[in-house]
């Protein structure tokens, strides 16, 4: 397992992927932005403020998805102690925190014209803030504990407890009376969002996922170099 992940071929692939994403990223970003800001229609009720959704929703998805990935990696990691999974989880966490914060801030900017307030302590928004706090704790444990095995154990437990918060975020809008509206896009069943708005949303999601992949690969590469450097000192 160790050898597979540390295979130098993987390292070369990381380099190739970074270069590939870099080469196509800006074209895709321009396409997605022009759809989100110019070509897509305004909403019948919200007018143009619906465009905020094109950054808010993908950011929230990424925030939730990356925490789920971190939590499952942490479960495996806590039981089997695989060093590479720690590196992967550690490389994902800052991206997740970044996008959770973006989701909160853009949501707040959207709330002002739509709801009439920047902030409301309803279940969805509060659970999203708690998610950001879990990310922060996860990242800080790696900074605080210098001994790596201890940092891994503590951060894994934090991620596993934080996993309970994920369904709470997702279903808060259905379980309790919240100011935040229920999800428009459902995994099963019909979505209550028109295709002319769904398309730019998915396009934007794709572009932001590419951005995440880019950052992840760079962070992961940094971690590998850090480990290699440590091994050098042992000679």
């Amino acid at each position: 397992m160790f050898n597979f992940f540390y295979n130098s071929n993987i390292f070369i692939w990381i380099e190739k992927l970074i270069n590939f994403i870099n080469s196509i990223f800006f074209v895709l970003l321009l396409v997605a932005l022009s759809f989100a800001l110019i070509f897509s229609p305004p909403d019948y009720l919200q007018g143009d403020s619906v465009r905020i959704m094109y950054v808010h929703v993908p950011a929230a998805w990424i925030g939730l998805a990356s925490f789920t990935v971190i939590a499952f990696l942490s479960i495996i990691n806590f039981i089997f102690k695989i060093k590479n999974l720690t590196l992967i989880a550690k490389s994902i966490a800052p991206i997740g925190l970044l996008f959770t914060c973006i989701a909160i801030v853009t949501g707040s900017i959207w709330g002002q014209p739509t709801w009439g307030t920047f902030w409301a302590w309803d279940a969805r928004i509060t659970s999203m803030v708690i998610l950001a706090i879990f990310y922060l704790l996860f990242i800080l444990t790696h900074k605080y504990f210098l001994e790596e095995s201890k940092a891994n154990n503590v951060s894994s437990l934090i991620a596993i407890v934080g996993l309970i918060n994920i369904p709470i975020v997702k279903y808060s809008v259905e379980w309790w009376a919240t100011l935040h509206q229920p999800a428009s896009i459902k995994i099963s069943g019909t979505s209550s969002i028109h295709s002319s708005m769904l398309m730019p949303l998915l396009l934007m999601f794709f572009v932001l996922i590419l951005y995440c992949a880019l950052i992840f690969l760079m962070k992961y590469k940094t971690e590998i170099i850090r480990i290699k450097k440590k091994n050098l000192k042992r000679i």
Partner: peptide, 28 residues
């Protein structure tokens, strides 16, 4: 101006991509 919503729309897009840009630069 997007019918008065321009400031909200533009500020959220600018914040998002500015933060992403800074984050990319730092990681690099």
């Amino acid at each position: 101006s997007m019918g008065g919503y321009g400031i909200f729309v533009w500020s959220s897009f600018v914040i998002t991509f500015l933060v992403c840009g800074v984050f990319y630069y730092k990681t690099r």
